[in-house]
Design a binder for these strands. Structure first.
Lengths: 219, 219, 219, 219
DNA sequence: AATGAATGAGCCTTCATTCAT
DNA sequence: GATGAATGAAGGCTCATTCAT
């Protein structure tokens, strides 16, 4: 009613959302997606059950928002950590921090990230939400800062590589230590490739023999 | 005294299982995991609902069995396709066929494989089942045939790489064509690495600057 | 800020519970435990199926609550029936009314009470629930009112005797009329008040030799 | 076909039945009625699943047969135990042994007997079966031997008392020791023989004031 | 904005029983 | 007589979502 009440309401809304998103992150990382009910989340957040559905159009979207918010917060913190990147290599340092931050999340919240990646696999993509927009913005900025002149290509590339790396870190059943796989991935993705690939080019298909996996010598 | 003979029973069991597994593959690839009920599967298989639970201890295990059976069948067929690998490069050709077969599955049955990989991610590993054993055996044989002298290390490595590649092919949200990502992966995994890594070695941590992702030049 | 007031919620809850408990009493007495489904109960109560599980953690606990509520209501009504017990024998009269009330329940709702006793036998005891607490409180009060100086001993004693008497009234296969067994029990347990029971056999089985099993002489 | 094969078959039938009945007794006493499936029973008996339904028209009847067989065996053994009852008090001794045998069963196989009594309560009576006939015959004989001139009245009376006593011993929720209740029952029913029961309270609760509910004075 | 009682579709599962062999 | 694969009805229960307050 009063001019001020609007902004007060807005602040209330924001806080309620945040509490719910934080509760989601915690519970899903503790128990996994299916074992976490909206009721649990509301309880942990100290809200009523109905509020969850009031703010989020569904359980899956809630999870997406929660994870993207967490990624955004973690990323922002990493980028602003002192000493802040400066000088000629500032862009490079910023990108390195961003990547480390995301992989650190996979290390620190494996169940949550597993659940997130599984959701993306199963439902074939991202659900639109504010939190994702915010994260995407930050990543794009980082790519630009790094020196990309074609962020529309390079940002999705970075995103895809990050997703792949996260999956690689999380995949179970590899008797080889995760740390080793991770290092291997990083070494290989040394980012020394030529960017701005023509979209569907055969892209260094090696050795010309057309096999998907050319096998030079014994395994 | 003269009950149905053992071999008749065995055959009955085998056929019922196969029907159910086939129906599972079809339906999950059509609709996804959650949208497929055990009732649907029984219906498609032409069996009673109870039979599903009679043969499989749960929905998830049923899916695992179904996918692993499919992978095994596809693999076996690829390996035996004429002209069968022969000569000095037979092992190499066999391995290449195996890898292509698995990736081909991701191409032809994306929803099924998505679901499968999501299940592995979410539940942190494989469920034990006969079908998986059979598949693992075939893959190990292929690795041995390729010339591996340490299949206990090389088979899990291959498996992990295959899983990673499948995920990479399936991950949505990458505006870069899947084929490109795939090729990139293959090139990088050119299999020219030294196998039989000491399990926890720092493994070519490159360039010594400690960043997880050393960034030599602009993206 | 202005959610439904607490007292309104409380009243809503109370009414829903009551409706479900009443429906349970009716249906179980009509059909028995196994033949009554939670769906039937919800239908009779005019609620959705899920409400039953929302209020009660399981079918068995629902039955326990329903029976204990019925016993409590019946008891309370008996104790407050006019003319209310007064004078020096008020405690005795109250106890007599309590016992008659419980046994009357066995007479009027045999299937329900059978089911209840069978549940107690099979699962070795009571499930905790509010309704049981309420009933226990009333019984304890009655024992105290009767003059017990050690209700912690006397209340469980009364409870056990009542349970035994109920079973005795309900046990099938006795060609001897229930009333006879009942009367015998009362006589043995010193309950020489005027029973309100319509005796299907002369109450107060004659003195002296009236034992059911006068062993010293031939049966 | 041959004259002998008939009796051979009969013997086979008898043995199969016995194995099933014994398995039922064991499993139901271990797990309770609902937790025991006909499949479990067949497995324990070493028979095929279908055989259970082939011999018994239903699960409940199987249990009845199993319990009545056990009671019959136990009773018969007690009555024939050396030194066998003889002399003028032989009948009395036989009856005492019979009663002790039944109560001993409640002590030794509480879950089984609980289940049995619960079944009788819930389903309002006995299911007809051979085993029950055999048990009834033995009990009647004992009553006759005791001196009854009207076994048609006295046998059902004994049966009802036994059932009541069994229930009393099994009823949970009485903080008073079972032995106390038991002793009380024995004292009231004139069973002044030397009990074989290890009393957890002094057997033969003394006369007069020893009543559990001496109503005329305050509890 | 917030509440939480109410909804109800739908799930997996169990298991006594049947019957072809 | 014996087998055990097959049946399929029925059941309790979960939980995302709705909506009156």
């Amino acid at each position: 009613m009063s001019p001020r009440s609007a902004s007060v309401n807005e602040e209330l809304r924001r806080r309620s959302r945040e509490r719910l998103l934080q509760a989601t992150v915690e519970l899903v990382d503790e128990r996994g997606y299916e074992a976490t009910t909206l009721g649990d989340i509301a309880d942990r957040a100290g809200s009523a059950r109905g509020l969850v559905s009031y703010y989020f159009p569904g359980k899956r979207q809630l999870l997406q928002s929660a994870v993207h918010r967490l990624m955004h917060l973690t990323l922002a913190e990493a980028l602003e950590r002192e000493p802040r990147p400066a000088g000629p290599d500032a862009g490079r340092e910023a990108l390195a921090r961003a990547i480390d931050a995301v992989l650190g999340l996979a290390r620190d919240r494996p169940t949550l990230m597993r659940t997130h990646m599984a959701g993306i696999l199963q439902h074939e993509g991202f659900v639109q939400c504010d939190e994702q927009q915010r994260l995407a913005g930050l990543l794009r900025d980082t790519v630009v800062r790094y020196g990309s002149r074609d962020p529309d290509t390079d940002y999705p590339l970075l995103r895809a590589l990050l997703m792949g790396a996260v999956v690689a870190v999380l995949l179970p059943g590899a008797p080889m230590p995760a740390a080793r796989l991770r290092a291997e991935l990083f070494a290989r993705y040394g980012l020394d490739w030529e960017l701005g690939f023509p979209p569907d080019a055969p892209a260094r298909e090696p050795s010309g023999q057309g096999s998907l996996l050319p096998l030079p010598g014994p395994l």
